[in-house]
């Protein structure tokens, strides 16, 4: 996964993330996108993806002060790139990898069907999630990449890069 330094950074947060911080980040990202002249449909796709990825971190991320979550939004010639990175324990890696491999291999129509059937027939997780967060990000973005890279001991970075075309 590459992030070009030619991208113009609109928004960056590296630090603890909780439900008090999230609305501030949403507001900041929204302001940045408004300043870029981004209209509602695209703005909604980006902000909704930011919310889902951030709430996945709040619900499921491993916590280590040395390795805080990172969220950044940048502008490219083609549109916008949202990168979200957090720490995961190795016990989560296999699940994430097989879950996402399955999702990214799905044709868009199938993803749409999965989204709809999970919405209408799925159940809630113990943490109140609907199991739709990453499906939603894949569904709303124009390109989606992820990687798991070792950090230290039993932990890895889980990084998601979602691109949105103008």
């Amino acid at each position: 996964m590459t992030v070009s330094y030619e991208h113009r950074l609109l928004f960056r947060h590296e630090g603890p993330l909780d439900m008090e911080v999230l609305p501030v980040l949403v507001h900041a990202a929204e302001r940045a996108l408004q300043n870029e002249g981004v209209r509602p449909p695209l703005r909604r796709r980006i902000i909704s993806s930011l919310i889902e990825l951030a709430q996945n971190i709040i619900r499921y991320s491993a916590v280590n002060e040395k390795y805080p979550p990172l969220l950044l939004l940048s502008r490219t010639d083609q549109g916008f790139v949202l990168i979200v990175r957090n720490l995961v324990h190795y016990s989560q890696e296999l699940f994430l990898h097989s879950y996402l491999q399955n999702l990214v291999s799905m044709p868009r129509q199938e993803l749409e069907k999965l989204h709809y059937s999970t919405l209408t027939e799925g159940s809630y997780s113990d943490s109140g999630g609907a199991g739709l967060g990453l499906v939603q990000v894949l569904f709303k973005s124009d390109a989606f990449e992820y990687e798991l890279t070792p950090v230290e001991g039993e932990y890895s970075w889980f990084t998601v890069k979602a691109s949105f075309s103008l």
Partner: peptide
């Protein structure tokens, strides 16, 4: 305005 996927499910 903005709503997350778990809200989407509760709305249904």
């Amino acid at each position: 305005e903005y709503f997350n996927t778990s809200t989407a499910k509760v709305l249904l």
